[in-house]
Design a protein around this nucleic acid. Structure first.
Lengths: 253, 253
DNA sequence: CGCTGAATTGATTAACCTCAACGGGGGTGG
DNA sequence: CCACCCCCGTTGAGGTTAATCAATTCAGCG
């Protein structure tokens, strides 16, 4: 993957935001990036570290998780291409949980210093990056509701709907079909249930003809039904940029 | 409460951050604020709204919650004096959940426009507010772990430890004693368990001499033990501002 | 073809929920 | 000042969900 394409992944993500200027695009293109490959399960940044770089997922999947006892792992969130899993470290230096590769992944790293220089020149981009961290926060809050209020089948259904929506937004889901390199144990740790029970839940979802799910390949057969089971409402993902253009740009400069 | 004190509450919160300049303090003091009183359970901002103001808790407690069915409420987080419960709306206009008063509270409201003007003049303050939203996000992520990996007694113990740490940080806990106007039903909805079970968990905590808990008055008798039960580690609260002074201020201007 | 990690199944157990009832305390109206 | 009431906390019994333990099958891979 040549450098030009790397930047375009970031630009593409940020320009979903209607207000990105030519100047902003140019500044993004100037950020120096280094590409890294990570193997399945490999740690990218560990809890407690204060990295001097941020990473951008280019290909594959990344997860953020907290592992106290080896047998008690909570996956906080999954990250898909275009996501910035540890962007918050720019402002809150110490990382609270570990970021690891789920399956093999390709990740671009860029130094905090370069970002800060970019932000100093463009309040517009500052706001866009701030926004990215807030969408990540909104996803975490929705997960709180998912774990606190829903039963096992709803949790899994909700997670599926979310991944479908997010992958669809970056062009990685077609016809409600997508591919995530997770095991049932990963799903279990994300949903706070046991692997055995995940298995039974998946069978129940298959049995009700809501999804096809063989290994890493997932196909949603009935999105409406699945959304209902998981009480899924995509608002919290903030995939459309409602309301942002109401702000006069003068306030951003 | 006269206006001068209102601003000082905000200044006090932000100046825990070591780098706040005189200029920053002056800019904060210029923000126009309106004080509102809210009764128990009263909504401050509702899900789906796009408020044009932010609020700062001055006195009492505020909570953020999502209520699907009336009988299925998840309390995402509690906010204590000095917190900015809907600061994120500055950047992500639509609110994903509802912010309500827990017990009676006093809240200061200030217009987004004034904040934006302030931020345009002070990248330092922009960074501080960004930081505030990220700490809020970190708390939500910790709650994910709390709900996903811990059993009922650990969840409640963890919540108690968190509230103690946060209240202590703003001078509202003394000798491990504090007062929160919640009911057992509120604790239940925050921890994702039933009110009946909350009651039994509290009795268990009382029985093990970890806490005294009568109504709204809470006293932690054995913090070490309670932290162990709740697997509580305060790092995620980011109460100390580790590492921030390592950033040269030139990057902020 | 054997090995290894993942998926699947069954049986038992533990944690927690639901329903239902009762008690107590503070506020309100008579 | 008393009586009532309502909300909250408390208790008990029975039911449900999901965890745990343990074994078996399956799929990919060297």
């Amino acid at each position: 993957m040549e450098i030009g394409r790397l930047h375009s992944r970031l630009v593409h993500r940020l320009e979903a935001f209607p207000g990105l200027s030519e100047e902003g695009r140019r500044l993004i293109a100037e950020i120096p990036m280094l590409v890294h490959n990570f193997g399945p399960g490999e740690d990218i940044v560990r809890e407690g570290q204060s990295p001097s770089q941020c990473c951008l997922v280019l290909r594959g999947f990344v997860m953020r998780h907290k592992t106290a006892h080896p047998a008690k792992r909570q996956i906080i969130s999954f990250y898909v291409p275009g996501d910035l899993p540890d962007l918050q470290c720019l402002v809150l230096p110490r990382l609270d949980d570990t970021v690891s590769s789920l399956g093999a992944s390709v990740v671009a790293m860029f130094p905090h210093s370069a970002i800060w220089e970019m932000l100093a020149r463009s309040p517009e981009l500052a706001r866009l990056l701030w926004r990215e961290t807030l969408v990540d926060a909104a996803i975490a809050r929705e997960r709180v509701t998912n774990l606190g209020q829903r039963d096992a089948i709803a949790r899994v259904a909700h997670l599926l709907c979310e991944m479908n929506a997010r992958l669809n937004a970056v062009g990685l889901a077609h016809d409600l079909q997508f591919c995530i390199p997770w095991t049932q144990a990963d799903v279990a740790d994300a949903c706070g249930i046991s692997t055995v029970h995940v298995n039974r839940v998946i069978q129940e979802l298959r049995g009700s003809n809501a999804v096809e799910w063989r290994g890493k390949e997932i196909r949603i057969l009935n999105l409406e039904q699945l959304s209902k089971i998981g009480e899924f409402c995509p608002n919290y993902l903030h995939l459309s940029h409602e309301g942002v253009d109401e702000k006069p740009s003068s306030r951003l400069n």
